[in-house]
């Protein structure tokens, strides 16, 4: 398969990237390209201009500030999985990154690309929401709770560029997903994080966009044990996805199990959970 013709730009700075996007007829940022290049091959994405972010050094930084860890948008999944700072401070996030896609995808795909794409079955959005993160763009900061809007839809404005994600460091956290065996995407995935002010539970793969499961948070707040979530029902939750791999009834059934297994992993981080 071949990609349609477009004008290629390689931006040297965030400022330049945003300017190029403003000047383009119908522009698109290219991060790692692990979704975009395939969709371009399928002619599902047609753009007049592609602005490659691969040469922008300022998007490739990882730093700790107070009780947060800030990760540049062009940091690859494999780097999040292996960077000592992330492993030390938020092992749950490193563990999530280590399970995205396959080895080759993790070497190329980026944090910012995944979050901006907001695939309903992507892993990273669960960590962004579960870790109470802030999405830092070229022009503002967006709370995770306001960022994910709907299927492939985020709060990003036209041309707005994610510069970094600032994650809040939890006391403990873990992610568990029911991995689709072919695609490695989450059929249902749960990110559980414990902060001094309470638990956060973010679920991906189950609805058009990632969401916080407040009933699970409240249950854990009351009794922080796997039994507390095992019997949770999902009756009040609407718009559960249904497809040939996993119908709605099954997805509802997987939700409390994913939360329980994430909790198990959080309680015994060195033990394999399955």
């Amino acid at each position: 398969m071949y990609v349609h013709d477009f004008i290629y730009h390689r931006a040297g700075s965030v400022e330049e990237a945003v300017r190029l996007m403003g000047e383009a007829e119908e522009g698109r940022y290219l991060a790692g390209g692990q979704t975009l290049v395939q969709t371009m091959k399928q002619k599902l994405a047609m753009s007049s201009d592609v602005i490659d972010l691969g040469g922008i050094a300022e998007l490739r930084k990882i730093s700790a500030q107070g009780d947060t860890v800030q990760i540049g948008s062009m940091i690859r999944h494999a780097e999040v999985a292996q960077t000592p700072l992330v492993l030390e401070r938020i092992p749950g996030l490193a563990g999530l990154a280590a399970g995205i896609g396959d080895r080759q995808v993790r070497n190329m795909g980026t944090l910012g690309g995944s979050v901006a794409n907001s695939d309903p079955a992507a892993d990273y959005p669960a960590a962004v929401l579960g870790l109470d993160a802030v999405v830092v763009t070229d022009s503002r900061e967006i709370e995770a709770g306001d960022f994910f809007v709907d299927l492939y839809e985020t709060a990003l404005e036209e041309g707005e560029l994610i510069v970094a994600i600032r994650f809040r460091v939890p006391m403990r956290s873990a992610y568990y997903k029911f991995r689709h065996p072919a695609s490695s995407f989450a059929m249902v995935g749960a990110f559980v994080a414990q902060f001094p002010d309470g638990f956060r539970v973010a679920v991906t793969g189950a609805r058009p966009t990632v969401f916080r499961w407040q009933a699970a948070e409240a249950a854990l707040q009351a009794v922080a044990s796997p039994e507390a979530v095992a019997q949770l029902d999902t009756d009040g939750i609407e718009d559960i996805l249904s497809d040939m791999h996993c119908d709605e009834t099954y997805r509802r059934r997987l939700m409390p199990v994913a939360v329980r297994r994430a909790l198990d992993a959080m309680n015994a981080p060195d033990k394999e959970t399955d």
Binding site: V3, Y8, R10, L30, G32, G33, Q34, V37, Q38, D52, G54, G55, A78, R103, Q104, V105, N107, M108
Partner: peptide, 20 residues
């Protein structure tokens, strides 16, 4: 699969321009 700067990637999934 090929290796770019020491890490394996899928060469059908990236543009040649990305490995400038």
């Amino acid at each position: 699969s090929v290796s770019v700067d020491g890490r394996v990637i899928k060469s059908c999934s990236i543009l040649a321009a990305q490995v400038q």
